[in-house]
């Protein structure tokens, strides 16, 4: 199963840090997200892109996880060479992850 089948996501940027929320459509699936989508797994998935650490925060009442990825945006929106300067499309990449 791919993550997009049970969750949705949005990316935000601050400097060279990207954060990606992962939100269960159905609150019952939060436990699955929490178990399967670890910070280690996300770091490995984004290994070509994220140079720093990945920290995961849990928001059970919202059925959501928030991944904060350091050194993730090629220097940040003002100086990155990425076509997607803000990394806005990274949420869609996370949702392609197989669990």
């Amino acid at each position: 199963m791919k993550l997009y089948e049970i969750a949705h996501s949005r990316t935000g940027d601050k400097g060279n840090i990207s954060n990606i929320s992962l939100i269960a459509y159905n609150l019952d699936d939060f436990a699955t997200l929490k178990e399967k989508v670890t910070s280690e797994k996300v770091k490995e998935w984004f290994k070509d892109i994220v140079e720093g650490e990945v920290i995961r925060y849990e928001l059970p009442s919202l059925g959501a996880l928030n991944f904060v990825m350091h050194d993730a945006l090629g220097g940040g929106v003002t100086r990155t060479l990425s076509l997607d300067m803000h990394g806005k499309s990274l949420s869609s990449a996370l949702l392609e992850m197989e669990i």
């Binding site: 949705h8 949005r10 929320s21 939100i23 928001l59 928030n66 904060v68």
Partner: peptide, 16 residues
Amino acid sequence: RHTVTEQLLYEIHNPS
């Protein structure tokens, strides 16, 4: 709930 949650966590690091 989904639109509000996405925006609540937009550009947020530690939610606390």
